[in-house]
Design a protein around this nucleic acid. Structure first.
Length: 570
RNA sequence: GGUCCCGUAGCUCAAUUGGAUAGAGCAUCCCCCUCCUAAGGGGAAGGUUACAGGUUCAACUCCUGUCGGGAUCACCA
């Protein structure tokens, strides 16, 4: 395309000073407009001082000389539609068979190092549904980026430095007393969950009666350590059940006493981003117990935040924000080019200050993208499932996996953009119908396998190398071309989804591909010539190859989503 | 009150980051099928993309404002 434009410049048709940066060539939304389209004529009309249609006509004539282009015609205000020679699509199907699991792998990431931090649930209990979506989105995003050429690190930040782990320790201590036959005092503010009973028993196992009747100061640190490590083991197990493996676990507590927090704060102070001052009372509703106090503050208003943020409490201890600054400084110094944090939507208030910190501490070298994950609403029998931590009716990730399986959980969690609330309907996700995307995609793959099985029984050679040698000129029906086009879109989709950090696009794409394939399959009912297995072996081979390439793409796509493809439905 | 997210067909959601006549699935209406894998197929209808301005050859997309829904707002993480 650019070559053709350059040629026109040389010929003097176009002014020599034009910039082609805004020229795009892409597959149009509407296939009636050809296989590829370009906006070149309209973008260039103004700078070239020529009517768009005139540019388009000249360009069309030039492009027709290319053997890969079958038809180039001018449409609408100056769009140039290109119909590619059939061989281009056939080559794509062949490419899918040759590349196999690598088909769709692209290089937009260019080996840049990206850190994806996700889940980061407090180590105070089992994971529940709210964590599940973040876990799935983060993990799928990481896989997607890896497939698109990034060097990816999956990371979990353990919030083990704040008051909530003391609460955990006290709660576990009561269970420890219970294990010794004493009445536990689960006071208001402690964690009442049964999952701490085994922790109490393990404490008894390790310490015997040694910690009984001792003041809190004597046991708090040890019990805290003991309980958090058990909680983290439980969380790792939960993640493993969901198919998530982290590369790095970073501890908040480990930042204390190392000077890292102080160093990060001092660095910011050197940029005049840290100062001591007094905050105004919050506007709107002022808390009744509000009183002015001097604190150490981060100047986040310089980055568009509505108020500066405290890093130190009035008693001199750090707020949660201080170790967070140090943690992100740490990620910057580890040499990542990009940081991505997957947070729950309730963290929306931290976005600006964290972006500000990363921008300041990296000298704008490192980008931070924060994906906010909206709520998941559970439905069962048409009723919303109410969840309350207090009433002990919150649904754990384990419950969810046990009921519908990890594959279903993962796929469904990716059928929505991250910043939109998601309804998870227990009844629908187990339904076998077209409006259950998990089933529909899996079913397509099962049908592909069914074709291959029957073809093998009929004596066809169906290895990928055999199929890649097929005569794809046999595939001429519009329904077959449609499936080929969809397959050809795959690498580009990977690129877009990765660039925008939106793994849900993969799930939607797979549904569309499955839909095109099912449509072709069903046409075979009425038109025997569209069935995959024919009497003529050359025709069969091409059709089977098409089916197989659908299977290749579905497997690659599901691989990114972390969903296991099924070979047979039952 | 500030900030962030959302608002698209009756319902649930897409829309290749600014492209052409805004697309799917349910539900509705019409026709066909019981078939290599049964859990269907084809078609019709359905829209001022919340509203009002602006930028652009081109706006669901970007900017400003308004309305509605949600999240969040020092001394918890």
């Amino acid at each position: 395309m650019i070559d053709a434009l350059n040629a026109l410049q040389v010929e003097g048709v176009l002014p020599a000073t034009l910039d082609f940066a805004a020229v795009a060539v892409e597959p149009p939304r509407d296939e009636a407009h050809g296989d590829m389209a370009t906006n070149a004529a309209m973008v260039l009309a103004k700078p070239a001082a020529m009517p768009p249609r005139a540019i388009a006509e000249a360009l069309a004539a030039k492009l027709m000389a290319d053997p890969r282009i079958a038809v180039a015609d001018v449409a609408g205000p100056g769009f140039l539609n290109l119909r590619l020679a059939p061989g281009v699509w056939q080559a794509v199907v062949r490419g899918a068979l040759i590349d196999g699991p690598e088909f769709g792998r692209v290089t937009v990431g260019a080996g840049r190092r990206v850190n994806v931090e996700f889940v980061s649930a407090n180590p105070t209990g089992p994971m529940h549904v709210a964590h599940a979506r973040g876990a799935v989105v983060g993990d799928a995003l990481a896989s997607l980026l890896a497939f698109a050429g990034w060097d990816v690190t999956r990371e979990y930040y353990i919030n083990d430095g704040g008051g909530q782990v003391d609460v955990l320790a006290r709660s576990a201590y009561e269970r420890y007393r219970e294990a010794h036959g004493l009445e536990p005092a689960i006071r208001e503010g402690l964690y009442p969950g049964d999952y701490l009973i085994p922790v109490g028993e393990a404490l008894k196992e390790t310490y015997g009666p040694a910690l009984l009747d001792k003041p809190e100061a004597d046991w708090l640190a040890e019990v805290r350590e003991f309980a958090t490590s058990m909680m983290m083991q439980m969380i790792r197990d939960d993640l493993a059940a969901l198919g998530v493996t982290m590369d790095v676990y970073s501890s908040e507590k480990a930042l204390y006493g190392t000077g890292q927090i102080e160093a990060a704060i001092e660095t910011l102070r050197g940029m005049d981003l840290i100062y001591d001052g007094i905050l105004e009372p919050p506007k709107g509703k002022t808390p009744e117990d509000w009183e002015p106090r001097e604190q150490t503050l981060f100047r986040s208003t310089a980055f568009g935040d509505d108020v500066d943020r405290p890093v130190q409490k009035s008693d001199g201890s750090w707020t949660y924000f201080a170790p967070d600054i140090a943690y992100h400084y740490n990620k910057v110094t580890r040499g990542f080019d990009e940081l991505i944090n997957v947070f729950g939507a309730d963290h929306s208030g931290y976005v600006k200050r964290l972006k500000a910190v990363v921008a300041a501490l990296s000298g704008n070298r490192v980008t931070l993208d924060i994906k906010l994950i909206q709520l998941v609403k559970l439905f069962k029998g048409g009723e919303i499932v109410k969840m309350s931590k207090r009433a002990g009716t919150f649904v754990t990730l384990r419950d969810l996996i046990d009921e519908v399986g990890a594959d279903v959980v993962r796929f469904v969690m990716l059928t929505r953009k991250n910043d939109v609330a998601l309804d998870f309907d227990f009844d629908k996700v187990l339904e076998q119908s077209k409006d259950n995307p998990v089933f529909y995609v899996q079913y397509a793959n099962a049908r592909v396998n069914s074709v291959l099985r029957k073809a093998r029984e009929a004596g066809f050679a169906v290895s990928d190398t055999d199929l890649a040698g097929a005569d794809f000129g046999q595939l001429s029906h519009p329904a077959e071309i449609e499936v080929s086009r969809k397959i050809a879109e795959w690498p580009r989709l990977v690129e877009i989804a990765a660039r925008t950090n939106e793994p849900h696009r993969v799930a939607f794409y797979l549904y569309e591909l499955a839909s095109a394939f099912h449509s072709l399959w069903n046409r075979g009912n009425d038109e025997p010539s569209l069935r995959f297995i024919q009497d003529d072996s050359a025709t069969s081979q091409a059709k089977i190859a098409l089916a197989r390439s659908v299977g290749v793409v579905i497997c690659n796509g599901l691989g990114i989503l972390g969903v296991t493809p099924v070979e047979e439905m039952r």
